[in-house]
Design a protein around this nucleic acid. Structure first.
Length: 656
RNA sequence: GGGAGCGUAGCUCAGUUGGAUAGAGCAUCUGCCUUCUAAGCAGAGGGUCGCAGGUUCGAGUCCUGCCGCUCCUACCA
């Protein structure tokens, strides 16, 4: 509602100003919200902006505009306030009726939606050699929420999880199985079949391998040899590696599914290698002159690319020592080269495709597809890639390689694709020194002084995602048990799980992307204040009202809001206004690729509702008209809150 | 050296392209459960927005210079 009326207002003002000041180049019509609701619903600082070109006091300009401009449909009046703000007041009854009728209208307002193109979001992409930890959780939750935001705004979205099954990390854990655990291929198979948390086993083994390397550098030969075998493929070690990485991958899918995070497609690095994506990309990059052969200097014999943002100085001659090496002098390609080829595939610029077969099926029936040789492609399989826009959810440390890939695509002449290449960058999750010591890790004196310590899968230092979730569920279960002994144990467990998910997802989303999260159990396990459970609780309270009132929330919204209903109810009106802003907030979150704004919105809406809940006792309200309005208010807030929670991936429990 | 980011209340963080009296949560203190559930509500205290300049009607926000912290910057993957 809010966005719809805001756009209508901006268009109206623009039209008026164009006529009034034909000679002036109009600034963009900015619409803000006044600090207090008594001042109106919209604030236009346009008079302040016009002060300079018109050489006139802002206040005077505002007064002139308000005196002459007509009031658009749905609005009540314009007023001048402050230093020259033009404030617009809504016709509250009309606006409230739009909100009440909303759902459909909101969806239409959210976008010229259905025509929006297909986008690809890649997130998670955990090396398949160990259990997922809290850092991976931030990635997956941010990525999944981005997917939900885009879908809510009408985009078609494919979700990808990139599987680096031929890298050093997988090689390391394979070395662990072969050299340290000394398990045969069939032993590993038995372990995979019998251990429901095989990824935890790998977590410990991986940490041991790292220590083993440190004990004797000669042990690193094992890594080198294994890595080579994995890249080549078609040997027992590569087969073992594939068994292990697929088992760990399965565990990752299970872990993320606990948080209601799903994927459509899993491209494997091994397939990018075996299908020679790079060879194809290499030819195109050479043909386009993006890569050139370095004849001299430290990069002699390599194929290199100009680094993004690098400008050759005046009179600088000789080899560009700063250039990025893509192909080494021994002819092998580095990681970035393969990534360029992969991203050309994403945009449909490569001219090659994966094969697709089913890998996993969610309990509700949707399939997750994995890459394979096209010869083995399942009949009737979907096709991925070739999209209009991509989002890569990858932590901030990877921004340099991300820029390099984007640069390559730009230099190839695909500026429009490169412009729709978004590196969704975010900061890491670290542990507070206190938290690390609670977990039993030894923390050096130097580290104790820091505000946070980086987690490390290599050292086995961190909090595993499944462990955290288990602890959250236990904590929530304790609360639910004591509050609702009348409910069955099974339902209490379900509710506790929903609360845990809500708490965890909210926790990971409430911080802005660029903020390092210093993880602490006390904060993460909190169910009070600005948390997921606080928001969930507001919805449960709203639902309880309707359960006892013997009316559905939907029916409560069918009676039209009566004329003048909000005349002396500023608090009710501000709740309706906040509820009407969801689609505007969602658009803002997409534009800024910052989901934190939506958690803020959810919290504020819940907070306002709790306030309302305490001030108005709905069921005992005697005035029938008033009671109707209160019920409609609860219904509208409940509906919007549930919509927002769905985008945040936070479930709505039945009781709390 | 170059690039990116950060610095706001005791702690953890918000703060929309410059705008109205700088906001939340936690922690501390004071009240509120016979009511639609207290995972809640009301209230109090707590600020030199790292420092110094500049731009202007107006700066937490933009510019410059410092101070402090973090990450990136290999022919490894």
């Amino acid at each position: 509602m809010y966005l719809y009326l805001q756009n209508r207002l901006a268009a109206h003002v623009r039209q008026f100003l164009t006529q009034k000041y034909p000679d002036i180049e109009l600034p963009e019509i900015v619409v803000e919200q006044p600090p207090k609701i008594e001042l109106g619903e919209f604030a236009l600082p346009v008079a302040l902006k016009l002060a300079r070109p018109l050489r006139k006091a802002p206040l005077k300009i505002a007064q002139e505009i308000v005196a002459e401009m007509s009031v658009p449909e749905g609005f009540a009046e314009f007023t001048v306030a402050g230093a020259g703000y033009i404030n617009a007041r809504l016709d509250r009854t009309t606006a409230a009726r739009i909100v009440a009728a909303d759902a459909a209208a909101n969806a239409a307002e959210a976008s010229a939606a259905n025509s929006r193109g297909k986008v690809l979001v890649e997130h998670t992409s955990i090396n398949p050699n160990k259990a997922a930890h809290i850092g991976h959780l931030r990635n997956s939750i941010l990525g999944d929420t981005l997917v939900r935001l885009l879908r809510a705004a009408g985009y078609k979205v494919d979700v990808q999880n990139y599987i680096d099954n031929t890298g050093v990390q997988v090689a390391d854990v394979v070395v662990g199985f072969e050299q340290m655990a000394k398990l045969s291929a069939s032993d590993v198979e038995k372990l995979i079949a019998s251990d429901p948390r095989f990824d935890f086993y790998c977590w410990d083994l991986y940490a041991k391998v790292s220590q083993w390397y440190e004990a004797d550098k000669a042990h690193l030969d094992a890594r080198r040899n294994t890595l080579h075998l994995l890249e080549t493929g078609g040997n027992p070690t590569a087969e073992l590696a594939q068994k292990i990485s697929m088992a760990v991958l399965r565990r990752h899918l299970e872990t993320m599914k606990r948080l209601d995070i799903e994927y459509d497609f899993l491209p494997q690095e091994s397939d990018i290698l075996h299908l020679h994506f790079w060879a194809q990309a290499f030819e195109k990059l050479k043909a386009a002159g993006v890569l050139y052969y370095e004849e001299a200097g430290k990069n002699k014999g390599c194929w290199v690319m100009t680094r993004p943002g690098h400008v050759r100085g005046e009179g600088e001659s000789g080899p560009d020592e700063d250039a990025k090496v893509i192909v080494r002098s021994n002819g092998t390609v580095g990681y970035v080269g393969k990534d360029i080829a992969y991203h050309m595939w994403k945009f449909g610029l490569l001219g090659l495709d994966f094969g697709y077969r089913k890998f996993y099926q969610y309990p509700e029936g949707q399939s997750v597809w994995i890459s394979c040789d096209p010869a083995q492609s399942e009949p009737g399989s979907p096709h991925f890639g070739g999209v209009d826009a991509i989002y890569n959810v990858i932590d901030a440390r990877q921004s340099e390689p991300q820029e390099t890939v984007k640069q390559a695509i730009t230099l190839m002449g695909h500026q429009e694709s490169a412009a729709r290449y978004t590196h969704f960058s975010y900061e890491m999750v670290a542990l507070t020194p206190r938290c690390a010591m609670e977990l039993g890790y030894t923390v050096s004196e130097e580290d104790q002084k820091k505000s946070y310590i980086e987690v490390s899968g290599r050292k086995g230092f961190g909090v595993k995602a499944d462990d955290l979730l288990d602890r959250l569920i236990d904590a929530a279960k304790g609360e639910v048990d004591s509050r609702h002994p009348e409910v069955s144990d099974q339902e209490r467990r379900e509710v506790a799980t929903q609360i845990a998910i809500g708490a965890l997802r909210y926790f990971m989303l409430k911080f802005t992307k660029q903020s390092v999260i210093a993880f602490d159990f006390r904060e993460a396990l909190s169910f009070e204040g600005e948390t997921g459970p606080y928001v969930q609780y507001a919805v449960v309270r709203a639902s309880n009202i309707f359960r006892k009132a013997g009316i559905t929330p939907e029916d409560a919204l069918k009676t039209p809001v009566s004329e003048g209903a909000f005349a002396d109810s500023e608090d009710l009106w501000s709740l309706w206004l906040a509820a009407g802003q969801t689609s505007k907030i969602i658009e803002g979150c997409i534009a800024s690729t910052e989901p934190a704004g939506l958690t803020k919105h959810a919290f504020q809406l819940a907070q306002q509702f709790n306030n309302f809940y305490h001030h108005h006792h709905i069921l005992t309200e005697e005035d029938a008209g008033r009671k109707q309005l209160l019920l409609a208010t609860a219904a509208v807030v409940r509906r919007e809150l549930m919509a927002v929670m769905a985008v945040l991936g936070i479930p709505a429990p039945s009781v709390m």
